[in-house]
């Protein structure tokens, strides 16, 4: 009789605990984006800070949602004058459009999750990317890794400046600044 009671209690506990375990967790992520402009005259390498509040059920990586934000003011390229121009009226107009945002709309799991201590899933993230006040649909491959409650997200995509009405000074884009910018982002956080 005692064993039956224990078994019933354990079953009840699991019944309550299972939905709680599967519930989406909040994931505050922080990291850095690296951006590269390759043009015939010059290659420019820069960084920007990135952060966001996401929700995810790690048992199902396709549940990731949330928005990742990069302040334009955090963009650096190693040259103060160029950084000022980058944030100025000819380029990203940081005063009018202070952030670059990516709002995750849907996630498709392409591979995984696999691994033991470190779980890894390859996903395809589709969402709304906003740069210079212009929002477009963007799909990017990403890798999601987690170990316990530690989570890491890596992604890379290409931004075509003309799509976001970033014209720059006449004759500069395509000559000193690439028409497209390669962006790679690494974000880390702890799921709670």
């Amino acid at each position: 009789m005692k064993h039956i009671r224990i078994a019933l209690a354990a079953a009840a506990l699991l019944a309550f605990a299972a939905p709680a375990l599967a519930a989406p967790q909040t994931l505050n992520v922080k990291g850095q984006a690296k951006w590269v402009s390759e043009a015939p005259v010059e290659k420019i390498v820069g960084t920007a800070d990135g952060a966001g509040v996401l929700t995810v059920d790690l048992a199902d990586p396709s549940t990731i949602r949330g928005t990742i934000t990069m302040p334009v003011a955090s963009m650096k390229s190693g040259n103060d004058q160029r950084d000022d121009h980058l944030k100025g009226s000819d380029w990203l107009e940081a005063d009018k459009h202070p952030t670059i945002d990516f709002a995750i709309g849907s996630v498709k799991v392409v591979e995984g999750p696999k691994g033991d201590a470190v779980k890894e899933a390859k996903v395809e993230v589709t969402g709304k990317f906003t740069l210079h006040g212009v929002t477009t649909d963007l799909t990017a491959p990403a890798t999601l890794k987690w170990k316990g409650d530690k989570v890491k997200i890596e992604t890379a995509f290409v931004v075509k400046l003309a799509d976001y009405k970033v014209a720059g000074k006449q004759g500069v884009v395509g000559d000193k600044v690439g028409e497209t910018i390669d962006v790679s982002v690494v974000l880390k956080g702890i799921a709670k």
């Binding site: 420019i44 390229s77 040259n79």
Partner: peptide, 9 residues
């Protein structure tokens, strides 16, 4: 082409 006063990480 342009001067850098700090170098990338």
């Amino acid at each position: 082409f342009a001067t850098r006063t700090t170098l990338p990480p």
